[in-house]
Design a protein around this nucleic acid. Structure first.
Lengths: 146, 146
DNA sequence: GTGATAATTGAGATTGAATCTCAATATCAA
DNA sequence: TTGATATTGAGATTCAATCTCAATTATCAC
């Protein structure tokens, strides 16, 4: 059994909830993707595969997956929420290209340290953070403009 | 004339737009506030003062104020956008208390440097960034729990 | 098994922020 | 004054997200 399924099952059991076929479909579809995705995307690709599901179930299941720590909500400023995997991905931050919309993940050791320092100085009990840097990626800039 | 009005007027002229009474009301109301605010908040407080305005005008004017650099959109994860002043406030980031919802601004010299370093390492032309640290503020933590 | 109890689902209604429409009005330049 | 253009606001519309509720399904105690 895949680790995400194990985690999800355990979470459900601990809450007296059930691992139903519908929830399984959402789990699989969500973990079949790389990158970020939206709820409506998931809905339409599940529909294309002619599997039974409803919008309500998708949203409800995504909520559960966030609660059990398998997914995370990320906000890129558009009209809808985006989700991304937590499992198997260490915490990371994002570069967002304003021209092509590409989202590039990165981590930086120093950022974690700085965050701790900021929290200490501000007397704040920081749990997690998000850093997004908006700009132009190297592809869009093109070689000529360097 | 207040600096924000001067800037807004210049911006409007440069675009062949007009400084109307309605736009003036929105400008004043937005700059009368400290902290962050939402469009609907602005609407209701303008209505309370019995000044003529419409929802459409509020949203349209806020958009203009963002375009001319007087306001900035900030996203704290709720259902609606928040705005904050840019004029007279240097760039800053946010601590968000998950218990009381308080938003604390901060700046850190090292953060700006780190951002530049990250961009260099990632070959990314960063324009601006947002860092939010979520956690519990010192008030909510209470003295006893330290 | 049987029946009580509780969880789950999905179609469609509802919400709420944000945007759009368009006719009426205001403003500007010549 | 006239014509071109910008502006406004009431209400309609959009769209993601949430909610409702009757029907269905799973689980448990006995």
């Amino acid at each position: 059994m895949r680790p995400e399924e194990r985690i999800f099952r355990n979470f459900l059991v601990s809450r007296d909830l059930r691992f139903t076929p519908e929830r399984e479909v959402v789990l699989q579809e969500a973990f079949q993707r790389h990158d970020h995705f939206e709820a409506e995307e998931l809905l339409s690709s599940i529909r294309k595969k002619r599997k039974r599901t409803s919008r309500a179930t998708i949203y409800r299941t995504l909520e559960l997956l966030v609660q059990c720590g398998l997914l995370e909500v990320v906000d890129f400023g558009g009209s809808s929420q985006h989700y991304e995997h937590v499992l198997g991905h260490q915490h990371h931050d994002h570069l967002v290209c304003e021209r092509c919309g590409r989202i590039i993940e990165f981590t930086h050791r120093k950022l974690e340290k700085l965050k701790e320092r900021i929290c200490q100085e501000m007397d704040f009990d920081g749990r997690f953070h998000t850093l997004k840097i908006f700009g132009i990626c190297e592809r869009c800039r093109g070689d000529s403009q360097r």
